[in-house]
Nucleic acid binder design. Structure first.
Lengths: 154, 154
DNA sequence: GGATATTGGTTGCTTTTGTAACTAACAACC
DNA sequence: GGTTGTTAGTTACAAAAGCAACCAATATCC
């Protein structure tokens, strides 16, 4: 922000980041919503299972930084629609091991391919160096000390 | 993303942007929530009135890129708590001209000062050049063609 | 000037999220 | 081996967002 300009929302990072996040999320969101009836959390859970193999709900919470109630609901929804399978662990019967069904795998493959394509079009207007700068800064901002939110915000 | 790496969510801009947006929003959100009991939309509406003077609801929608139902509710909430005043326009009785009360002005002043301070601490870790790059890219991403969302998404 | 369309804004209903309390299984301690 | 504390995950309830229908004032068209 320039020194004597009045403060504009476009100078305020939380606002700018939100606007950019919303604008860029829309295109892809439409895709998984229209084609698989998924919500964002469901897509993320599916993604983690596809990318990292079978996981427990808690493992997804940690990896994906999503609160357990959101994961719980996303898992229930994905299970109901046969995208994933739940298997009680014999070592600890509180935990369920979650893994994708064939249908889930297929959805994952398609969605990841789509996500990659979409990502490329998003980044295409910028130089490789700009892209690196962007990624580096965003990662740092994302990992910021989260105030007094212990753990992950719901 | 490097050529042969499997696709990770950290490479996916919508995800990264959302994470950064959420992380950076938290700190400030706690402030206006704790001190003024405001929601994000309310803070944004207040901001626009403080920054640009009296406006109609539609003007706020346009400037702030917020859907009219959200603005309508935010205005009602801010009015109920005497942060703003509503005055029917004689030129077009459908429209109300909204302006901050003294209390609203005071809140605006405090919140803007706070926002500026907060913003500075967020950006402090990065060089001026990085900050410029970031702002430039975010603005461009935020103004992206919004798919088939005509107007502003609710 | 009366029918029709448009615009500004609100309201009702549904879906999604936030928050807290809760259950069940396991762990630790005595 | 029973009490106490944790942990995994679910559920119930409240707050908020999304969406569509709606009302009232104005503009348009004949």
């Amino acid at each position: 922000m320039t020194q004597n300009d009045p403060f504009a929302l476009a100078d305020f990072m939380p606002y700018l980041l939100n606007q950019a996040a919303e604008a860029t999320s829309l295109g892809f969101q439409k895709y998984y919503k229209a084609n698989y009836g998924m919500l964002r959390t469901e897509w993320r859970v599916l993604f983690h299972l596809g990318r990292y193999g079978a996981l427990t709900a808690t493992a997804i919470c940690t990896k994906a930084q999503i609160h357990k109630t959101k994961v719980s609901r996303a898992v229930a929804a994905l299970e109901a629609r046969r995208f994933l399978l739940r298997e009680e662990m014999q070592s600890d019967r509180r935990q369920d091991l979650l893994s994708l069904t064939r249908k889930g795998q297929a959805a994952f493959n398609d969605l990841v391919a789509q996500a990659q394509r979409y990502n490329e079009t998003l980044l295409a207007p910028f130089t490789a160096q700009d892209q690196d700068t962007l990624r580096r800064i965003l990662l740092k901002l994302a990992q910021m000390e989260q105030g007094d939110a212990r753990g992950i915000a719901p």
